[in-house]
Simulated scan of single mutants.
Amino acid sequence: MVYIIIFLLIICVFLAFRLFYVEGQIKSITNQIVYINANKVDKKITIGLLNKKIEKLAEKINEIIQIKKQSEANKVKLENDLRQTIANMSHDLRTPLTSIIGYIQFLKLDNTSEDEKKEYLDIAEKRAKALEVLLNDFYELSLIESLDYELNLEKLNINKILQECILGKYTDFINRDINPRIEIPKNNIYIIAEEKSLQRVIENLLSNSVKYAKDNVEVCLKLEKNTAILQVKNTVEDLTLDDVKNIFNRFYMADKTRSGKGTGLGLAIVKGLVHKMNGSISADIKENVLSICCRFQKV
């Protein structure tokens, strides 16, 4: 009987010690969490107890800390992107508005001739139309990037749509004295997409190549296994790898003075629409030739 009592006492002492030690570890974990939250340090929870449940708890807490850290980093990036977008938008709005106001003030001058008035009106109208394009592009992009924006996807002949878009841009190529090299297979390729969105993608890619090509433009549609690949290439000047990495970002322009020919939204719209149509898009540059590839699943 005495041995049983001694044995039970030993067990009680052991359990009491273990409980005290577990409580100490829980208190240590709590203090570490408080310290991490208060000081915002990059640190993980550590424990000194070989207990599977406590180890699992510490592991899950570390996962939550990592998720929180990533979330805060994403929040900072989004805030920076928003500030940059607002700054770019303000600049791009202010430039044509200032020009329009300036020409309107010229029109009010008494010594302005009728020919000058007509010239100033034409310039003001051109600036107003550029402003309208910018606002329309920004509105379209905001719609595309919204989570609830859906496309009416259907089976489409990409060969036919590409040919129509190239014919629509024929005058632009002629005006730039560019004779594009075009490769479209004889066999029709079908993909799942929305017709007006696919047209918008192709038109934006062609417009971008016409505006910024140094001399040569290539448009190629091909089939690799079960993937339809639309590739638009054009020669460029002073375009860096960093420019290519950021080429699909909103308002990004290789021209840092933002005095170029576009709004900086065209390729961002392309990327958004391609992703909405379950495709992928990439850009690369080799030997001063910019290549943009869109990939869609063949059906």
Rank of each mutant, 00 (worst) to 15 (best):
F20C: 08
N136C: 03
T257I: 05
P185N: 06
D284Q: 13
D137Q: 15
N278S: 05
L147K: 14
I189S: 01
Q32G: 08
S291E: 12
L57F: 15
K52F: 13
N246Q: 10
A73N: 11
K52Q: 11
L131N: 09
K222C: 02
K261Q: 10
R127T: 02
L121W: 08
K214R: 03
T227N: 03
V274I: 09
L223A: 00
N80K: 15
V244S: 03
K77V: 12
I123F: 15
S207E: 13
L267N: 02
T95I: 14
S99C: 01
S142Y: 04
I64F: 10
K196C: 00
I184N: 07
E72K: 10
S113M: 02
D215K: 12
E119R: 12
A228W: 04
K155N: 15
I158K: 06
N175S: 12
R18H: 03
N37T: 07
Y103V: 08
K43H: 07
S146M: 10
I61A: 05
V22M: 10
I26S: 02
A128L: 13
L221E: 02
L221Q: 06
L134F: 11
R127D: 15
D284V: 03
K40I: 05
R94A: 09
A128C: 11
I101K: 11
E23I: 08
M89R: 13
F106V: 09
S90L: 13
F7P: 00
R181T: 08
E218G: 00
N216G: 00
S197E: 08
V22I: 14
E140Q: 15
D122H: 11
V41C: 10
I281N: 01
K225W: 02
D242N: 09
S209I: 00
K60G: 09
Y252D: 03
T240L: 07
I47E: 04
L107E: 15
I86N: 07
A128G: 09
G279V: 00
E132V: 12
I4R: 14
E23N: 09
A124T: 10
P96F: 03
I144P: 01
S280H: 04
E224M: 04
S28Q: 11
V289G: 01
E140F: 15
E287F: 05
L151V: 02
A254D: 06
V270C: 05
K286E: 14
A254I: 03
K43F: 03
L107K: 12
I101N: 06
A254R: 04
L143V: 11
I65M: 10
N234D: 09
R295D: 09
G272Y: 02
G264V: 00
I10Y: 15
K75W: 14
N111A: 11
A283Y: 08
T227K: 06
Y139V: 13
G260F: 02
L97Y: 14
D242G: 01
G168T: 08
I64G: 07
L143F: 12
F20T: 11
K129Y: 15
P96A: 10
Q25S: 00
R176G: 02
R258H: 14
I158W: 01
V34R: 14
N51S: 03
E119H: 08
R258G: 00
S197K: 06
D238M: 06
G266R: 07
I144R: 08
L241W: 13
N179V: 12
N111M: 14
Q32D: 09
K56Q: 13
Y149E: 12
I178R: 01
G264S: 07
K126N: 13
K44N: 10
